[in-house]
Amino acid sequence: MTVYWGNGDVQRTGLLHHGIAVAGAGPAVGAGLGEGLTMRCARIKDHASFRPVTDLLRERAAQAPTPPGDETAKAELEKAMTLLRTRKRPNNQLGVAYSWAATARPVRRHILSLAGLSPDRWESPIHSFTEAERLAMRHAVLRAISTYERALNAV
């Protein structure tokens, strides 16, 4: 599309590229589409000032928070919590066992010693440890990770 603009030079305006309008700012040289100087412009197609205020007020009212003590909201919340409680949880025991077994020997020994356990238990399957021991191992790994991250940031 060509328009006469300013001093009468023919300018290219309204080139559409990926949904964004591009307007010419100088003489378009050459026969190729979009050649020449261009300037950016914003898409204002969906700007709120072009919509009726009643639509905006209706959307705003729909987003209003639920008042405290609303019985319908409490019932919906209880229904959602019941669904969460009764959902079937995945069985990750096999993956956890493989992951521990695939961990290198020195790493397993180091984790056990950091957790205050005997490093000689490095060959024991992960499910042979009690929950308290596994929790101590998790905390030891998290402490080691934060220590190594600090060292990495310092380097």
Rank of each mutant, 00 (worst) to 15 (best):
W5F: 13
G6N: 03
N7H: 06
G8M: 01
G8A: 03
G8I: 01
D9K: 14
D9M: 11
D9R: 09
V10P: 14
V10L: 10
V10Q: 14
R12V: 08
L16K: 03
L16T: 08
H18T: 14
G19P: 07
G19C: 03
I20D: 06
I20P: 02
A21L: 15
A21H: 04
V22Q: 10
V22R: 12
A23E: 15
G24C: 05
A25P: 05
A25R: 15
A25C: 06
A25V: 15
G26N: 03
A28P: 04
A28Q: 11
V29K: 08
V29I: 11
G30K: 04
G30M: 11
G30Y: 05
L33S: 13
L33F: 15
G34M: 09
G34V: 02
G34L: 09
G36T: 03
M39E: 15
M39K: 05
M39T: 15
M39D: 09
R40D: 14
R40K: 11
R40N: 12
R40T: 15
C41I: 15
C41M: 12
R43D: 14
I44H: 14
I44M: 10
K45A: 10
D46W: 08
H47W: 00
A48G: 09
A48R: 04
A48L: 12
S49C: 13
R51E: 05
P52A: 04
P52Q: 07
V53L: 09
V53A: 02
V53K: 02
L57K: 01
L57D: 00
L57V: 00
L57Q: 01
R58V: 10
R58I: 06
A61F: 01
A62N: 07
Q63H: 09
A64Q: 10
T66I: 12
T66A: 13
P67H: 07
P68K: 04
P68Y: 05
G69P: 02
E71I: 15
T72H: 07
A73L: 06
A73H: 08
A73Q: 08
K74L: 12
A75D: 08
E78V: 09
E78S: 08
M81V: 09
M81E: 15
T82E: 14
T82Q: 15
L84R: 13
R85P: 03
R85F: 07
T86F: 08
K88D: 11
P90L: 13
P90K: 02
P90C: 07
N91T: 07
N92E: 07
Q93V: 08
Q93M: 11
G95T: 05
V96N: 13
S99E: 09
S99P: 06
W100F: 04
A102V: 08
A102L: 13
T103Y: 01
P106N: 10
R108D: 02
R108V: 00
H110K: 09
I111L: 02
L112Q: 00
S113E: 10
S113Y: 03
L114G: 02
L114E: 09
L114S: 10
A115L: 01
A115W: 00
G116Y: 07
S118Y: 02
S118N: 13
S118A: 12
S118K: 07
P119V: 06
S124R: 06
P125L: 08
H127M: 10
H127D: 15
S128T: 09
F129C: 02
A132R: 00
A132E: 05
L135Q: 06
A136N: 00
M137Q: 01
R138H: 01
H139V: 00
A140V: 01
R143M: 01
